[in-house]
Nucleic acid binder design. Structure first.
Lengths: 198, 198, 198, 198
DNA sequence: GATGAATGAGGCTTCATTCAT
DNA sequence: TATGAATGAAGCCTCATTCAT
């Protein structure tokens, strides 16, 4: 017998659910999924512990919705960018635009990204969600860029290009390595990607 | 008053400690740190739960030793490779050798790598250990390759090259993306790195 | 990050907390602090083990509240007696009144008294609480009796008088020594104290 | 089937057993019985954990022997004093001698005394041992002093006199109350006791 | 006799989830 | 819907005791 989970329709309910998701997002990003308990989430969301289970099946269900939120915030803009790509731009301009977008997106979400990635390990289902997302980005890029007539657009090339972008963005956001100069790094990344498709 | 932790010297003790580390390694890799409990570790190691705390301060202490083990298995060969590099090799040969090594190393340790990376999130101390290791690899590569007279050896170039290698290896090991052809991917990676230092 | 401990305000919460304290009081008195485990306390209080930690930081925290309870039951009446002393009474009447009060108080709390005293040994903080309490009794007695114009009221005299009272009460309550006649003992104690302040 | 416990006869065995008792004595006095574990005792005694169970049935058995040790150190001198009492001494001299002895004995054993007293609570058997000891002291005093022709020697008088002595000694040893002057306290105690038997 | 590694029951505490109000 | 008190299974860790060497 499946527990009754509210599908909130009233404005107030929707807000309550949102508050919980936001709280989960914040805490998972800050402390990790396993080090966050539902009481903390409820407190952060300023709701009672009980009501959490009125909107979510269980703790993992909160995680799933946090992931959805993450997707909305991070992947939707990417898909949007892909969909709105027009041939008019030069390759270099395109690469730089993507780098800019990636940088901005990551700045706001690097912690949750890392944590979600971490949880993927322990949870196959979530892991699959992430792999699927990356697949989609890759394949939609490939499709669109081919349509626009770019050369040498292969799955492998796009995949690597994306990894290079991620490497760069990662550095910018985490600032882990003092011996790395971001400007130089970006220059190299742009050139590498440019050379890949030349 | 600090608990007494055995520093094993006898053969039997060393073996017991090793069994526990191995069990931790296996289970952390398989299920993650947070989803592994001490009873499972003890059972996997075929020892009692109590003795675990004869050799380790606490559960996290097991993790630390697992990390050391990981370092020994993964990073030592890398440092070894770096130290033994000789000019005689062509750049291409060098790149391919490194790819081969990375591939082999990763094959045996990709799960634990991912998990340890994941735990880094929740634990600053461990996170630092990993950043430090990557730093060492990068900087030692830079130093050695400069000594050998290679051109365009910069921190940024090496850093990116390593990321490319990791991207490739990651694909090979996890086999997540059916639309990626490893052979092609490798070819591209080799060419990209080659072009970086030309 | 401090665990959230309920400060009970609702009637139900207050009752639950009280049930736990009462259970602790009973079991610590009966079996001692170290031989009582939290499961027993929860069972005796007819609550779940978990909720205990909703009201108390840890097991020792229960002990502290039990001590507070003990203080309320034992020391508050003593302080009350001191505060309400009036000169009208003869010395002998006063001594006898105090003996009566002490005897009654001790009858209900001798076991917990002994146990709390015992724990004082292992725990400095608790030990200090007890020494402080005795100090207060002594010094407040001294102050009040001086105010009332009694003679030869010194710290030392009062201290010893209290010890004599305790010796007597102890005998009455524990009935350890068959060769002691309580009536005679009381008579001697009264006379001794009387002679101290004559 | 009773476990085989060595009754040590060889010199070396006797020493080993003694080392363990001494270690127990020291640690029980310092940290209390329940906060001392057998590993600590073994370490303090510089023997292996295993051998402890060659000489003692269990942990409580160590406690029993520690108590015997305590008795030897504290009560034997008292019994000795009683046995050697001669009429020649004046009452005051006698009281002062006893106070001196009690003070010296307590100085070396106040911690263990308190702890053993504490354990008595949790363990009836041990509690009985202590009550018996006090009984013996009381009754032997009574008997001897009567033999020597002292007046007003009753069980109750002696019992109280001993309690007064203990009160004084306790103060001297623990120094808990800053507002108590030992010299004055002693004077009062001596006078009180003197008056009891006058 | 002696060692110290090993055992495993049991204690303290946490926390996802439920339920009375 | 909402609250937050209550539940109880499960996790981490300790330690008296045993056992292989």
């Amino acid at each position: 017998m499946q527990k009754e989970i509210r599908q909130p329709v009233q404005q107030r309910s929707i807000e309550t659910k949102r508050k919980i998701i936001t709280a989960g997002y914040f805490l998972f990003a800050k402390n990790g999924f396993f080090k966050t308990n539902t009481a903390q989430i409820a407190k952060q969301a300023q709701v009672s512990t009980g009501i959490v289970y009125g909107y979510f099946q269980d703790k993992k269900d909160i995680l799933k919705e946090v992931i959805n939120e993450y997707i909305t915030q991070v992947y939707d803009p990417i898909f949007n960018l892909i969909d709105n790509l027009g041939k008019k731009e030069s390759s270099l301009k395109l690469i730089n635009d993507i780098l800019d977008l990636a940088e901005n997106l990551h700045k706001d979400s690097c912690d949750i990204h890392r944590e979600l990635n971490a949880v993927s390990q322990a949870d196959e289902e979530i892991g699959k969600t992430f792999v699927d997302l990356q697949d989609q980005v890759t394949l939609r890029f490939v499709k669109k860029l081919e349509e626009l007539g770019y050369k040498k657009i292969t799955n492998e090339n796009i995949h690597l290009a994306m990894n290079l972008i991620e490497s760069y963005v990662h550095e910018v956001v985490y600032d882990n390595h003092s011996y790395i100069n971001y400007k130089k790094l970006r220059e190299i990344v742009v050139n590498l990607i440019y050379s890949m498709f030349k």
